[in-house]
Design a protein around this nucleic acid. Structure first.
Lengths: 342, 342
DNA sequence: AATATTTCCGAAAACGTTTTCGGAAATATT
DNA sequence: AATATTTCCGAAAACGTTTTCGGAAATATT
């Protein structure tokens, strides 16, 4: 391995001081143009690459790195958010560290601490289910590390965030089903710890009430969403139990598109025709939703935009003093085949 | 912001030297047990966190960071590989930087350079389509940075890699179709630049030949896979053109599961029954393949395992001197509904 | 009791940069 | 021609650690 060249090597090669070399490479004033040119030439000839560690240490600021914490990495929505973050970060020459909490509180905390110890300039986090604000995030905010919360909300949180209007999205979805003639609308929801799920559940209930439909408690099923495959399986069985009711539903609003897959599976196996026997609306416009049959009506959640905005908020927060950046995106319904009028 | 505590603060608080504090925290010898205890107590009381930048600089080794370069981040297989990498990296206290090349050669090069400049300890890369080994990867290998190539292969590359046996996977898939009575087997393949696609195409052709079926050139379609949505659309039209042939195929082997989605879509819209009119086998066992209807027969590609192995290879390469680590995983066929016997 | 060994600690240098301060040389101003 | 100003450069300190070297104090060995 050829030793990495440093300022000293360039300085010695040209018989000048390290200070001057540094000045030339950093486009500082106080330097003769001819000297600068010589230095730049020599630097490129020797293939000089600055040592970012030393620079960061000296400047007392971390490198251009942000940390992104996601519950699950191989998940369509989250990886799309990550994509959005990365495109913007790349533009600003920031690098992106990624951590996967797997919806485990302790792991989330550990990742955050590692990121902070490492010296990231900012944290972008989609909190895990049941994430504890005081325990996991507050210490970081106290350190004045710009932080943006994505996708889901903490109670009483007042910092930067980027959210989807889950309530309204769900409300619109259910009202769409009602307008299309469905009346017995079930909902496959999440457990309570899930703020996103809670919001969507509220939207569901309020849409029913506004349209003078009394919510049927039998129609509301709460599933554990921590693991995708298991949750789809759970959705399958939840659908089964719905159809064992004396008065089964004629439509289901699912808290995510993935959950809708479980419903599709049960319907397929039991000759329940979608949408004639059962209307379905999902949430998030996952890649699959357009390719399953019949195509799934869903509430769009723009992951790219959310990621891009999250990065931009971080970047603005870094350069503004304590100002808050908050955005709730409206989500719009994408009407497809799974919910056509009865 | 409370100033970050450093060794000096602990030293002053206890009236001892920085050297001793450092020794205590690093579990070095040459220190009195009582002193060590006092120091550890004080350190935890003052909430001391070591400055990794300084440590790395002093030790003259980069931080515990690896760089992962993927063509597309919100893609099921690649994000699953990333997951595998991350679980192993986390175990060894390595952090993971991620970059997305978007199948753009220049961008891939830029990401690699950024990673190297940044001082990563290793590079794990799934090369983009048409990636140039000499141009993009060789400079890094010359710097003796442990590198593992994942999923696809460079010509004449002789370094660490983790691959799937694409040839055999494809061969098995096509032979499975033949055994199940399909004889007019088409293949939706990739463009030539795609080594994975090329291997699978060879497997397809050889399986036909071995079973004394003359490959029909009309049955081989090559698609651009750079963008998922576009490629699915292209698959749709390729299927259309296949069915406009005088003698349309009775089965299609698709280079990926995603490409199969385009076939499903065309079949659905044109009342072509899968598998009765058209058998289908995909490749990679994407999440969707189990949830579309009928369930897709596919060749499993274990992304988690590939990612884990890639990390392990990096780790071993870091500690061994120039030894090569290479593995080609056998891929096994998962038989589902889309290819049942005629 | 003298000497040898061990235990424990600190001063200082070093990793590769940036930045402050000061000053010599060149140039501009009287 | 004397002085003021500007241009350009270098020495040294600093960022927060680790490590080398040396040595004082305590303990063990004769």
């Amino acid at each position: 391995m050829t030793k990495r060249v440093k300022l000293k090597d360039i300085a010695e090669a040209l018989g000048i001081s390290i200070t001057t070399v540094s000045r030339a490479l950093n486009n500082k004033s106080d330097i003769n143009q001819a000297t600068r040119r010589k230095i730049l030439e020599m630097a490129s000839e020797m293939d000089y690459k600055p040592n970012n560690l030393a620079i960061s240490l000296r400047k007392n600021k971390s490198a251009q790195v942000i940390g992104v914490v996601l519950p699950i990495i191989n998940h369509y929505f989250f990886s799309t958010v990550l994509k959005g973050i990365m495109t913007r970060a790349h533009l600003h020459n920031y690098m992106v560290l990624v951590g996967e909490s797997l919806h485990v509180l302790q792991k989330e905390k550990q990742i955050l601490e590692e990121f902070v110890d490492y010296g990231v300039s900012g944290i972008l986090i989609a909190p895990c289910l049941g994430s504890n604000f005081e325990q996991n995030l507050l210490p970081i905010i106290h350190r004045r590390i710009p932080t943006v919360v994505m996708d889901r909300m903490y109670e009483n949180y007042n910092g930067n965030f980027v959210l989807t209007n889950d309530y309204k999205g769900a409300f619109d979805a259910v009202e769409h089903l009602i307008k299309n003639g469905y009346t017995k609308i079930a909902h496959l929801s999440s457990l309570d710890a899930h703020s996103v799920g809670a919001e969507r559940r509220k939207g569901y209930l309020d849409a029913l009430k506004k349209n003078e439909i009394t919510p049927n408690p039998d129609y509301l099923k709460q599933l554990d969403l921590k693991e995708e495959v298991k949750s789809i399986r759970a959705a399958y069985f939840a659908t089964e139990s719905l159809f064992k009711l004396d008065n089964p539903p004629d439509a289901i609003f699912t808290v995510t598109d993935e959950i809708a897959l479980g419903v599709y599976q049960y319907a397929q196996e039991n000759n329940i025709n979608i949408p004639n026997d059962l209307g379905i609306v999902g949430f998030s416009n996952a890649m699959i939703s357009k390719y399953i049959s019949p195509q799934l009506t869903t509430v769009e959640q723009n992951g790219i935009l959310m990621g891009e905005t999250a990065y931009d908020f971080f970047h603005q927060a870094l350069h503004s003093n304590g100002h808050l950046f908050q955005k709730t995106f409206d989500s719009n319904l994408i009407v497809r085949e799974s919910s056509i009028p009865k």
